[in-house]
Design a protein around this nucleic acid. Sequence first.
RNA 1: GGGAUCUUGGUGAAGCUGGUUAUCACGCCACCCUGUCACGGUGGAGGCCACGGGUUCGAGCCCCGUAGAUCUCGCCA
Length: 592
Amino acid sequence: MNFTKRTVTCGALTAADVGKTVILNGWVHRDRNHGALHFINLRDRYGITQVVVDDSASEELQKAAAALKMEYCIAVTGVVRKRPDNMINKDMATGEIEVQAQKIEILSKCETLPFMIDEETTANEDLRLKYRFLDLRSGGMQKRIRLRHEFIKAIRDFLCDKDFYEIETPTLIRSTPEGARDFLVPSRKYAGKFYALPQSPQLYKQLLMVSGFDKYFQIARCYRDEDARGDRQLEFTQLDLEMSFVQRDDVLSLMEELFGYVFKRTMNYELPAHFRRIDYFDAMNTYGCDKPDLRFECEIKDLAPIVEKSTFEAYKQILADKGFVKAVVAPATEGFDMTRKYLDSLAEAAKVYGASFVPFIKVGENHALSGSAAKYFTGLEEELCSYLGAKNGDVILMVAHNNWKKCCASAGALRSKLGKDLGLIKPGFAFCWIVDFPLFEYNEEEGHWEAAHHMFSMPQAKFIDTLEQNPGEVRGDLYDMVVNGYECASGSIRIHDVELQKRIFRICNFTDEEAEKKFGFLLNAFKYGPPPHGGIAPGIDRMVMIMSEQSSIKEAIAFPKNSFAVSPMDDCPNDVDQKQLEELHLAIKYPK
RNA sequence: GGGAUCUUGGUGAAGCUGGUUAUCACGCCACCCUGUCACGGUGGAGGCCACGGGUUCGAGCCCCGUAGAUCUCGCCA
């Protein structure tokens, strides 16, 4: 096809180009027609350039300009000229110049838009996804997709400089038990058999270690057939990474260096040389979750010592039953009233995680207490306030539960909501490591232990001899990287010993025969000189979401699915032909 | 599977304790305009207020149901 091909992009021209004849290709972003003077903002991925058609233009050119509508794709031939001094637009990269059009060619027309192409699209998400190709034209989406590209490029540059190999692993793999639900792919050649899409390249990267590729990474697509969330899609991208002959701190240091480099390069943001390391139990007790947002304080305190002395019988009973009582102090905040209604909304947030009610105490002058639970602490006013560091105007919120995790999580929900609502969150990026996770957790429904992380993580040395005696006490060489309250990477030092691996399978209720059948290829490989190894896998989409200060992972993905795992644009998932089903030896049994 | 919130011209919103002609901004169409840059001005078109029932003299508003959306609990090694 013949068209007038661009000689420059819409972001390139400066005062240095004045006098040049240029050709621009792009979309009509804004169109300001003053009759005999007509401005057209022409946009492409690189920027926006102002095109002018004035009364010196031929009648034909003026007509062509008048026919333009928003988002027409056009070619403009013209001469770069400096704008008059008082007409320079300092907010535009190309604001010093404009292009005086000599010829305008319409490359393609555009129907009336379903929504405006702005910096950020305000239309509801369903419509944005249906017209994702238009939504992606917005300034915000363009920036985020660019950031994602630069982020991945910086990762590749950094790791390749460190002698890592980028190696691809299969996306049609065998389905393995445990973990998330697999996406299955039916086999045509083998009736009744299936491939699975990988939840992660976990086993392959371990096998690569056995093969001697001692520094591996991959920008890997992963698939988990679970319900979506704000920060979770069923299809997502990880930086999958593994190294041989390393210990935990080697992996953590590498990540600190990597993210320091990447944040500096892509955002000119300085990260600390080392990220704080927090023991899993400390994180739960202090922040109420294993992915704390460290951009604000508002720490959770154990209230048991004070409650013991109080007359709060309901809570004392919970403590007597080996339960837990925790408190969060909502700091007095200018312009924010702790109304009854707001306190109720806090209680609702905590109840989601198991708290049955949330007593509160308002602190007045000289430790005067009021509120639903104040009466139980008569005589303890000063002690309570100094223990919690509560001052005049603060509100003390309490939660209790027989279950430690639920007590922590309820308090964590309070902390989290207060951080957002009271504006306690400081700008920036707060990285930390959560370390020493328990290796196993008990599955009440199934009635056996299972891996908290996955079955290939190394128990810490001091537990190895006595794993079976009390699996709940065993801590693993596990680590999560957390940023601003999001789990952004998860990793571990792996097991590389056949016997130890078999013991872990047994604790997780796999017989030797089952383990051999399902993981035999890994156990077999471990017979042939496997190196000590470990790794980590940061989530790319989630990092880009956080870096661009978004709260939805969809903002970091070009073509995401909606919350019901549907793509409204191409209407997927969709029906397939009966013939396809027959080739795959499948029959559909519809639910009632 | 559960919970919360929501659904009003193409888009985003307003619409109070139910009251007659459903309001505003952007967009769209027509015309005017020589320095705009989210241009401005004048005029115009465009709505069974998601769908189906119910209460009422009267429903965008109240009640019930259905569908869809967003967030969330469970789930996510």
